[in-house]
Design a protein around this nucleic acid. Sequence first.
DNA 1: GATGAATGAGAATTCATTCAT
DNA 2: TATGAATGAATTCTCATTCAT
Lengths: 208, 208, 208, 208
Amino acid sequence: MKRARTDEAKEDRRAALLKAALDTFYEHGFRAARMDDIARRAGVSKGAVYLYFDSKDALFEALIEDLATPNIERAEAIMRSAPSFDMAVTQFAAFAPYMLQETDLPKLMKILVGDSQFFPDVISNYRRNNLERLIGALKTLLTEAHARGEIDAPDADLTARLIVAPMAFAGMWQAVFGRDPEAAMDLPALFALHAANIRKALRPEAPE
Amino acid sequence: MKRARTDEAKEDRRAALLKAALDTFYEHGFRAARMDDIARRAGVSKGAVYLYFDSKDALFEALIEDLATPNIERAEAIMRSAPSFDMAVTQFAAFAPYMLQETDLPKLMKILVGDSQFFPDVISNYRRNNLERLIGALKTLLTEAHARGEIDAPDADLTARLIVAPMAFAGMWQAVFGRDPEAAMDLPALFALHAANIRKALRPEAPE
Amino acid sequence: MKRARTDEAKEDRRAALLKAALDTFYEHGFRAARMDDIARRAGVSKGAVYLYFDSKDALFEALIEDLATPNIERAEAIMRSAPSFDMAVTQFAAFAPYMLQETDLPKLMKILVGDSQFFPDVISNYRRNNLERLIGALKTLLTEAHARGEIDAPDADLTARLIVAPMAFAGMWQAVFGRDPEAAMDLPALFALHAANIRKALRPEAPE
Amino acid sequence: MKRARTDEAKEDRRAALLKAALDTFYEHGFRAARMDDIARRAGVSKGAVYLYFDSKDALFEALIEDLATPNIERAEAIMRSAPSFDMAVTQFAAFAPYMLQETDLPKLMKILVGDSQFFPDVISNYRRNNLERLIGALKTLLTEAHARGEIDAPDADLTARLIVAPMAFAGMWQAVFGRDPEAAMDLPALFALHAANIRKALRPEAPE
DNA sequence: GATGAATGAGAATTCATTCAT
DNA sequence: TATGAATGAATTCTCATTCAT
């Protein structure tokens, strides 16, 4: 393999290793994943992996770290920029299928669930810095819309979780059954229906 | 260890091994789980496990087989026996927290997700014989209620999945973050709200 | 299994175990042979084997002990009773195929060769008490015939071994390739030819 | 252990492993031989063996493969190059003790006999490609000499086997009793006598 | 920096032997 | 006596990690 002398080349190789690790962990699980496979998939020798990561554990931790941040920031931006609750819900319904089908999110979800036991701290951080932050942003949105009388959602926390739930459901479904064409789901339709349901369920009752 | 000479004593031991396997697979994942630990947890020697199961794989498969059936039958019974759609939703909202907190369902879910790659057939069967069957039963309920004009749910399949989604969400959450008290969720409240949302979202629009 | 209360019943069971052991050791070798298989083949429970033999080793030793003696005595009798060297050779040529085809001798040979390393004493005894005794008897026969001028065999020891060699050859062949019909040999013809060769080779040269 | 980086160094290590395997299988038999012992005897670690051979079985098969070919070719060359039947027999008588005392042939013979049950195909191939080929070469020699009137050997096949028999006998004797000095045989004398016997036995009878 | 050969701890599985019934 | 469930030592093979080249 050519030597990665420049910083940029090093960064590329690091990224290739993380992508290879993601796919390998997804396909085999953390324990069954072989460093050798990850190395080969990244087009690098076994020994070279250790030039970039101290250990298999460190590789896993770096992987989660790396994948976590971008998504959450995008989601927060959507919620902050939406002019109304309805618009936010609409955008969420459009964004969710994309996330589940075009990004590595389902793979990440499966890895987090399947291998969480090895890295309690990583998992705990992920929950706090990503899931709770996402739910928190949703809660803010709900609370403000409720205050404006736009929706009727007295319990913002639980409501936020119910809004998010289909993403968890569809993501896991994708991750676990995704290879089986028989199990395919129409995600855009699912989330469009979900958005409609949410809007209707949160619609303030017209006063008599 | 005392010897299990009667069929009943053998059945008890088999059950103890399955319970030990469930807990060990849940805590460590299939690959990292040591047969020795499973044996010790069930109070028998390493070798004894092999008197009851041919291999670690066979133990896993027996475990899924064993845990799968009872739940689904209970759920189907609930749906069939409910006099109205509203009642069914109410019962579901009461049943879900129990399932998630008092049974091994979340552990099973985590194992299925985390170790699905090792047993594609087992996972595929589980989807067909359990998840799709549960969704199917819900669809029937929805279709009939829709026909009666009780609800407005033109797409029964996706609606069923949206009804089920919070169970997947809460189950995985429980399984992955359950040990962390900070992450606790009020499941009865969550499902009560979910039931209310569902009822409102599916309520037929009053004709003009 | 019925209990073997009488001495005769015990002896029968012991013999059944030895026969089962012979076949199992022959088929799998000492190390790979499972006590369970031997027991089952003898129609006895695993534990019962230990009522008759202290250990797998003891079973092996008893087996060799048991099978050794009868054959050698028969062979010695033949040689002692033959009126002439020619007759002895003729009888040997007739006896050898029978031994190789109708008795367990080839199985015994294979076991001795294949598992000799585990029991150096057993093997050493077998050589002394059986092989060397057989060769010794042949030597006596040769020496006496030579003294009578019936044959010309100055080196009785080596001659005896050369006479015996085809039995070793055919026995091992049988034991190793016997299952393969393609490898079959016409043993009666082989030994008839051997006898003829021996007679001709040992015929005293006519003095000029 | 120093690392074998060149192809040559790797070939050397492979050969060292095969030699270690031969000795270990000879001493303990296939089943009782420990991979660890083979590795240690070759001066490498347990894991290193698996860099050269996929499994214990593969190591065994490679061993037989490796040892089979050279001997047979040498023997065939001898028979083809001999100017007369008598010369061929003389050379055979000189060659046999060397093969039995200076090469690994007896060890190979013991392994083939003792562990034949594990590898029926290997054993079957060995018979066809080595033993039958050797016997075939001898048959050709006998048939041609018979046709020339040099010898009287109407049944070339059986005669060939009788010529070869003492090698089998002495080889097994060597392999099984070789460690015991008390059991030593004078192989050069044995084969010299055998050659003399063969020549005399096959000498055409003078016409009346 | 990069490689891949070597290491050795670790885990599944087998089976002789024991012993409660 | 007879059984067969239970034990645990032993053995094969894997793979993260190291380090000579």
